[in-house]
């Protein structure tokens, strides 16, 4: 068994995540050029830990969503530079790798409430978008398969909505910025685009404000106070009597019992 986070003895806090149990096949990997033999099948992160590294930087969620563990690597006999997330990428024999836990990138400060939903706002804050040379190195390096260059192109054309949608799964690891010839901080630019889109371009949900206002006006105060004063047994009865919205019900479903709405 490789990469086991499960098989821990109870009562211990030290864990042995990378301890393999079944027939181990050790393979060489080169961490910043130095060779370590580690069990095959591990992710880059677990392989480095197995070898004795203890991360302070370069590890966050350990689940592929935070962008802390950006890693670049080469394979034996291959000139190409590959990139991936250390927590998600499985090691290969003779991989040469290094983590890039931080890469400097300019981030503009702004007062969000004052921004207008117009591309000029982004151009003003990030004039460097126009330095994009359309080389597509950013897209190639992205571990989340975001169409980075296309999203920058969308911004240049003024299509904030498209940029927001294209970059929705961005985890801001910074690899795009590290490869950019035009020195763009793509992931910061996209964050701005998504916020403008979400708050100022996408249609807003009126029902949220109405519901918040109903609370504010005390609409539910009396019934809630009653619930709060109730004993467990009475609560249990109410709980079991709840009318359950069917799973396949459409948006227009309404309950038969409208007393507490």
């Amino acid at each position: 068994m490789s990469g086991s986070e499960t098989e821990k003895e109870a009562h211990t806090t030290a864990t042995e995540e990378a301890k393999p149990e079944v027939a181990i096949n050790m393979i060489p990997v080169f961490v910043m050029g130095k060779r370590y033999d580690v069990p095959e099948g591990l992710t880059i992160m677990k392989a480095m830990e197995y070898a004795g590294y203890k991360f302070i930087r370069g590890a966050g969620c350990r689940g592929g969503v935070c962008g802390a563990c950006a890693t670049v690597y080469r394979k034996a006999g291959d000139y190409k530079i590959y990139a991936g997330l250390a927590c998600q990428t499985v090691i290969e024999p003779n991989m040469y790798l290094t983590q890039i836990p931080f890469y400097p990138a300019n981030r503009a400060e702004y007062r969000f409430e004052e921004l207008k939903p117009e591309p000029e706002e982004i151009f003003k804050l990030y004039p460097e978008v126009f330095r994009c040379l359309a080389c597509n190195a950013c897209t190639k390096v992205c571990p989340m398969d975001v169409e980075v260059m296309d999203a920058i192109a969308a911004i240049k054309k003024g299509d904030i909505a498209k940029a927001a949608e294209l970059t929705f799964s961005c985890i801001q690891c910074g690899l795009c910025a590290s490869r950019c010839l035009g020195e763009l901080p793509q992931y910061h630019i996209f964050q701005l685009a998504r916020r403008i889109y979400g708050a100022k371009i996408a249609p807003q949900a009126e029902h949220l404000k109405q519901a918040a206002q109903a609370v504010e006006e005390g609409k539910y105060e009396k019934v809630l106070q009653e619930l709060m004063g109730m004993g467990i047994e009475d609560l249990k009865i109410l709980y079991q009597e709840r009318e359950i919205e069917p799973e396949m019900a459409g948006e227009d479903w309404e309950p038969a019992d409208k007393r507490h709405l």
């Binding site: 029902h207 949220l208 519901a211 918040a212 539910y220 309404e254 507490h260 709405l261």
Partner: peptide, 11 residues
Amino acid sequence: AAAKMEKDSPY
């Protein structure tokens, strides 16, 4: 969040 008042409430 109970934010669809036609079918839900904080109660």
